[in-house]
Design a protein around this nucleic acid. Structure first.
Lengths: 206, 206
DNA sequence: AGAGTATGTGAGCAGACCCTCGGGTTTTGA
DNA sequence: TCAAAACCCGAGGGTCTGCTCACATACTCT
């Protein structure tokens, strides 16, 4: 019988300023190690060293390695949500094509910045029991896109918009990743194909 | 200086019938373990045991663990190419929508059959230095889709068709995975959204 | 039949990893 | 100022994993 594993939530809330710094440094280091060495090189000792902390400190904030991974995923998902919200806000009053291009560029920038980290997160998201976290941050991302779409498709119901947003997010993510990972000389084709795919989906069946 | 790692190609070609059986059983076991336990539980000892072979036998056919993974990926990519070719052949003379739906259903079936295996392959494809294998099998898959698209877009150049096929493959894969992984009660929404996305892309900008 | 080759075996080694634990250092607050 | 609380440290225990190697068995061919 497997003894119940500790939860994936942080073990201790940082109270003093220095401990919050340690906590942040650990998560930042985790992201860095994953980008640099992939899931294989992602060891707790490597993360602690990179963070300038000891392995003991790491385990004061995270009950186990998966909890660290979960915290990193939650952070990155929140950041993605914020990025989308900004892009949507900046596109208010502009054309659908303009907004989509703006969103696509944001996605390309994120993927260029950390392709291996994103790939690792994609895999780990499905392995870890963090559906609660994901549905919350995922909802934020979808909400941002719904705001964007509502401006251009005022006749659609909220539910229809949510579905569209969900598929839009999936399509853009996939096409962007596919073209950016190929390390093409420039990223114009990534942008062009992503925009084409997104607009095709949104305008079709309208 | 990292000592040169052995290549990812098989170590020994099976000559007798029994050895070919062992080889097949090992790759089949690898797929089974990955689907059942994910990348974490994918150990060489587990694979050998599941295959009914000894760990020593495994290392007679594969120089290391990555080579086994590479062989599995190559097999699954070939199978995907074959599946696509069949779907394309079966859709000859029918409408674009009909063909796309056929392709989407094939993709859904594959993802339903082994979602965790596919996720693991997605990650490992990028980690292993197997671009040669992938570009070959990838070309086969694209070629099948180009055949399909050429029938419906006779005016397009070969290069344009290849791009379309590439993006089509990416879109369908992503949307299918996204909806199938959610384990919706049925898979009608997966089919509907995938078809919509694919047709939207193909018809837009024509 | 029997020598030579191909294939199969599994105990166990070397190394890596997660995580604990006993103890030290810094900060807080009265 | 000084005790309590918060925080930090890192050697190493226990466990697991990839892989080797010395040997056994099955097959082939003359």
């Amino acid at each position: 019988m497997a003894t119940a594993k500790p939860p994936l939530t942080p073990k201790k809330q940082p109270l003093q300023a220095r401990s919050r710094a340690t906590d942040d440094a650990l998560i930042e280091a985790a992201a860095h190690i994953l980008e640099e060495r992939g899931l294989d090189g992602f060891t707790t000792n490597a993360v602690a060293e990179r963070a300038g902390a000891s392995i003991g400190s790491l385990y004061q904030y995270f009950p186990n390695k998966d909890a660290l991974m979960a915290a990193l995923i939650a952070l990155k998902q929140r950041e993605l949500g914020d990025t989308l919200s900004e892009a949507v806000a900046a596109s208010s009053g502009r054309s659908l094509r303009h907004g989509v291009r703006h969103l696509v560029r944001a996605a390309i920038d994120l993927q260029r910045a950390a392709p291996r980290l994103n790939a690792a997160i994609d895999y780990e998201e499905n392995r870890l029991p963090i559906t609660a976290i994901l549905s919350r941050t995922g909802d934020d991302q979808i909400a941002a896109l719904v705001t964007f779409l509502a401006e251009h498709f005022p006749a659609k119901t909220k539910a229809a918009l949510r579905t569209d947003a969900d598929v839009l997010r999936t399509i853009v993510r996939a096409v962007v990743d596919h073209y950016v990972d190929r390390a093409e000389p420039d990223f114009r084709s990534a942008e062009r194909q992503s925009v084409k795919a997104a607009l095709g989906y949104l305008r079709h069946g309208a």
